[in-house]
Simulated assay, not measured.
Amino acid sequence: MPHREENWSIIQLPVIPDHRGNLTFIEGDRHIPFPIARVYYLYDVPGGASRAGHAHKQLAQLMIAASGSFDVHLDDGTRKETFSLNRSNKGLLVRSMVWREIDNFSSGAVCLVLASMPYDESDYYRSYEDFQAAIRQRG
């Protein structure tokens, strides 16, 4: 887990190597700083398509390239950073109040997401302008 609370960080997940193939596991409140309330995954994303395009008011997530690769673009209103995820034993922890967009999906890519809360539409900023206004209000 990250040593200090940052808006995002890469988390190295445990790997149990075996000649038959590797195994990685994730335990909520141990490997990631929240209990896992929801799991979902993105797959069969058409070439050139983009996903996400939102921010969360409270929810935190861990994004993992379970298969293939993709890029995650993050923006907290102060800084922007892009991560290329392509290893199943590394996750991108994204905390609340971070705008995220995911693109550049390879063929067969699967983006696995572990979330700190169940789905709640009222937790989303769907408009970048609304997100920016909320960041300014937090000031």
Rank of each mutant, 00 (worst) to 15 (best):
115 A>Y: 01
3 H>P: 14
77 G>A: 03
111 C>H: 11
102 I>T: 09
61 Q>G: 04
52 A>P: 06
59 L>G: 07
48 G>E: 03
50 S>N: 11
69 S>H: 10
108 G>F: 13
78 T>S: 12
56 H>Y: 01
135 I>G: 04
83 F>W: 08
123 D>I: 10
47 G>R: 14
113 V>Y: 04
130 D>W: 02
77 G>F: 01
127 S>E: 13
86 N>L: 08
56 H>G: 01
33 P>H: 02
17 P>T: 11
113 V>E: 00
40 Y>K: 07
74 L>V: 05
52 A>N: 06
15 V>N: 07
40 Y>M: 04
131 F>C: 03
37 A>P: 04
13 L>K: 02
116 S>G: 09
63 M>P: 07
115 A>S: 07
39 V>K: 07
30 R>Q: 11
111 C>K: 06
53 G>W: 12
136 R>E: 11
25 F>Y: 15
126 R>I: 09
126 R>H: 13
4 R>W: 14
21 G>F: 01
137 Q>D: 13
120 D>Q: 12
49 A>G: 09
3 H>W: 14
67 S>M: 12
24 T>S: 12
107 S>T: 11
98 V>P: 02
104 N>W: 00
93 L>W: 00
48 G>R: 06
78 T>D: 12
34 F>L: 00
52 A>D: 06
5 E>G: 07
3 H>Y: 14
133 A>C: 09
127 S>M: 08
13 L>R: 02
86 N>S: 14
126 R>C: 03
63 M>T: 13
14 P>M: 02
75 D>R: 09
85 L>S: 04
82 T>M: 14
131 F>M: 05
7 N>D: 06
74 L>I: 01
4 R>M: 15
126 R>L: 13
37 A>E: 05
101 E>F: 03
54 H>L: 11
76 D>S: 02
119 Y>N: 06
49 A>Y: 15
44 D>K: 14
116 S>E: 04
10 I>H: 01
21 G>W: 03
68 G>D: 01
31 H>D: 08
114 L>E: 00
132 Q>A: 10
76 D>R: 03
73 H>V: 07
117 M>A: 11
106 S>V: 00
113 V>M: 01
111 C>D: 06
67 S>T: 09
